[in-house]
Design a protein around this nucleic acid. Structure first.
Lengths: 343, 343
DNA sequence: TCACCTAATGATAGCGCTGTCATCGTAGCC
DNA sequence: GGCTACGATGACAGCGCTATCATTAGGTGA
């Protein structure tokens, strides 16, 4: 166990008082350059590093930035995490994260865990906190960013995009490409998924093409295998379905494989569109259309906004909409012209 | 900002001294049952929660468990994280993680960050720490688990499997299935990848089937697209290659798609084997053979071993080999019998 | 009955740092 | 020259908790 070097020892060596060392470290401009350099030398000689616990106790503030996400394995969240980490990894802040497992009461608990550490900042996924959680957030007393989506009534700051609009855009794309009997595949119907479904539905209805019977969903977690199963179920029930908007890319990938197994040509007999635009969509055969969401950027921006606030810099607008763009690929090139089908 | 309730306030309400409250909370068996229940009631009434910083300062120990992994997006590590979190999420411990980006000097830095918090435990990925990092670990003064692989000379505890042997088993499988010109696809040649390659090579050599020219590798990060590119490069150079052992599942998936694009039948003309056995391998068409590694379990066991040590329970063996099993699927069903090829 | 132990509780003194005020020069000004 | 203003530094106390030793009460054996 490396023995701890204290401020007092550094002070003694530099021939100043401890508080001056503390100041030299935290606000270098408030000490004489000459004194400062003596202190810096002592710090270097002794290999001094401040004790975060002591600092937290004295200031009533920790350097922990808490991140609350539903899942540690879902690529969507890990990309956001990665963005956060990219901007915080080198800083004085420590990232601590909690996994809610999509469970509101777990979220409340974890919020409590974070809050009692008096975090420097908080990043939470989504906008669907329970009233109790919302109350906790309101009194968090630290910069807070809600990520993943935009919505009304932010607690503090917000960076994301409209899942409803993104899904609507994807649906418009399917229709524009000539598909007329679009379906929806969804798993783990969390609030964001619901809003995507709503976007799909709104757009399909606007085109007079909505058919509630073409929505195949489950509360089970999403996976490639689930996507295959959902497509099979949908095509069994409504074999004339000519396109599917999949709630995420795993489902889309599963749908593609299942279509292969069933001998259904993609995109000729079935258009497939995913959501999130994971890297594999581009590499698939055929490449799969998906909606690009800026997940890394979302995390990065959230981290920057928090840092800006903590450094008393301008964090920019409190609500950042990163948008989402349909990446059109071969999987939605449009239905094959059947001599019989006319259209 | 929720105002903090202190030990002293609880003590006053319960009519005891602060230290007794402290004891009642930490070692309930050392206070009179009657006193304890009075204290418990006061804690509940006041909604008291201990201040982790104060505790850390007083004890010289934090409840932070540090986790050091190379990447926050690679499914391999997120699954391990998930396992860790599964066993630590409900405990008094807080997980804090650092991302090394496969960079040894970043790893050293992060180790320093963790160590200065006097963590309760440490989980680090891999066994290839630099000498400097190794020195830090040796004096960490807390339970420590190296995860992801097994090897000689553990710092403390270790849970993983032999990447060399796992790759060798996969290679044996390919050979047993009748493939005779196996190649290797590898990206991001980190130490574990290197050892997998060594396992492939050893086994192929043992069968007299090793050909250095059939190893297609790159230092670039792994991805599905990369797998496609690597396979194309390999088949362009050595068109008679009849199987590939892919360093991970992303590459395998990319190889499958590229084979489709090139019109190469899988498994008849090309056997494909992945590594890690992500969920999507089973759902692919054809389903892809892969090597199942117990990632979640790895994290879970590591967390348990640390907890056991901290609770002075028996942590079990210090070195746990979780093994890895080849999951044979259609993608390696064996080469088609060509009238010409005999064999 | 008394020395002696044990169990339960308390008093005291920090852990390492920083907030707050006090102190001391020195420069600037009338 | 005497005053204020201000910049640089220091003394002191205390953040909320726990390690350590002290104290008290009750029980034990000679």
């Amino acid at each position: 166990m490396a023995k701890r070097v204290t401020l007092a020892e550094v002070a003694a060596r530099a021939g100043v008082s401890p508080i001056t060392v503390s100041r030299a470290l935290r606000r270098p401009d408030t000490v004489q350059p000459e004194t400062r350099s003596r202190i810096d030398a002592a710090v270097a000689d002794l290999g001094y590093v401040p004790d975060p616990a002591a600092r937290a106790l004295a200031t009533g503030r920790s350097d922990v930035i808490g991140v609350l996400i539903p899942s540690a394995t879902n690529a969507v969240f890990t990309d956001v995490l990665s963005g956060i980490y990219d901007r915080l990894g080198e800083s004085r802040f420590d990232v601590q994260y909690g996994i809610t497992r999509y469970d509101p009461s777990t979220e409340e608990n974890l919020l409590g865990v974070f809050l009692r550490q008096r975090p420097a900042g908080l990043i939470v996924a989504g906008i669907d906190q329970t009233p109790a959680a919302r109350r906790l957030l309101d009194r968090a007393g630290c910069p807070l960013v809600q990520v993943m989506e935009t919505g009304p009534d932010p607690v503090d700051m917000m960076v994301g995009f409209s899942h409803h609009d993104a899904a609507a855009a994807a649906t418009r794309h399917l229709i524009a490409r000539g598909y007329r009997r679009p379906g929806f595949l969804g798993a783990r119907m969390d609030p964001r998924t619901q809003r995507r479904f709503a976007g799909f539905r709104a757009e399909a209805e606007a085109a007079g093409l909505y058919d509630a019977d073409r929505a195949e969903t489950t509360d089970q977690p999403s996976s490639v295998g689930r996507g295959a199963a959902l497509l099979r179920a949908l095509l069994t029930r409504r074999p004339d379905t000519d396109a599917v908007f999949c709630n995420n890319d795993d489902l889309a990938m599963g749908a593609l494989f299942e279509a292969m197994r069933m001998g259904v040509p993609v995109p000729g007999a079935l258009g497939i569109c995913g959501f999130n635009d994971l890297e594999m969509m581009r590499a698939a055969e055929p490449p799969i259309t998906s909606v690009r969401t800026n997940r890394f950027e979302m995390g990065a921006r959230a981290a920057e906004m928090i840092r800006a606030r903590l450094d008393a810099r301008d964090p920019g607008p409190a609500l950042v909409d990163l948008g989402a763009e349909v990446q059109a690929r071969r999987s939605t090139d449009g239905p094959a012209r059947h001599p019989s089908a006319g259209q």
